[in-house]
């Protein structure tokens, strides 16, 4: 194509009508979301502190059951806080990165999410084993008569694990679909010209 032809196309292209309307409503919503995400983060911090304090209080009670519950609470809160911190430290989306890098980063984030989901599923399995051991311990030290709240705590924990399991499976399925789409996008952009 001659330079004159291409110049004509450039002129035609750049003469396309445009209405540049800044997304005012979306920006206001984004500002509100930022406030809520900061509030959510502080909520996580406060919950973690309460968890550590509760674990410490249980440890201070001295009886075997309280020591086991206290230690496991502290371990659980520490593990969840570490995972949350790690997830937040992952490089967030940079929409101003070069196009190929943005797509590659998006794929990396999804793959990391899937690895986290697999780790969560293993953690749920470990949690179920631990609960079984705890139930056996409660039974051996006298069961419901001696530790009436023991079985209630186990039931609550089982319910919580079931919720986490269901949520993780749904999350895994959605992210697997996202990964397939992103890889298709990457392939389309990398296709031989």
């Amino acid at each position: 194509m001659s330079g004159t032809d291409w110049n004509e196309l450039e002129r035609a292209w750049q003469s396309l009508p445009s209405t540049a309307t800044p997304a005012v409503a979306e920006m206001q919503r984004a500002r509100r979301w930022q406030w809520w995400s900061v509030a959510y983060l502080w909520g996580e911090v406060v919950t973690a502190i309460c968890g550590f304090l509760a674990g410490g209080w249980l440890l201070s009670r001295g009886d075997t059951f309280s020591i086991v519950m206290g230690a496991s609470t502290i371990v659980f809160v520490a593990a969840v806080s570490t995972a949350s911190y790690w997830a937040r430290s992952l490089r967030g989306e940079r929409v101003d990165d070069p196009v190929m890098q943005t797509v590659a980063s998006a794929i990396q984030r999804v793959e990391t999410g899937l690895r986290l989901a697999r780790a969560t599923l293993w953690s749920v399995c470990a949690g179920l084993v631990w609960l079984a051991v705890l139930a056996a311990s409660v039974h051996l030290v006298g069961g419901a008569a001696e530790y009436p709240r023991g079985y209630v705590a186990i039931a609550v924990a089982l319910f919580w694990l079931a919720l986490v399991l269901a949520g993780t499976i749904v999350y895994q399925q959605r992210r697997a679909v996202d990964l397939a789409r992103l890889k298709a996008v990457e392939a389309a952009l990398k296709a031989e010209v």
Partner: peptide, 20 residues
């Protein structure tokens, strides 16, 4: 260049999302 990157990245995400 900055504006073009943002625009193309968002547009590609838009089309990939719409593929659902």
């Amino acid at each position: 260049t900055f504006v073009a990157r943002v625009a193309h990245n968002r547009a590609i995400s838009h089309v990939a999302r719409e593929a659902r």
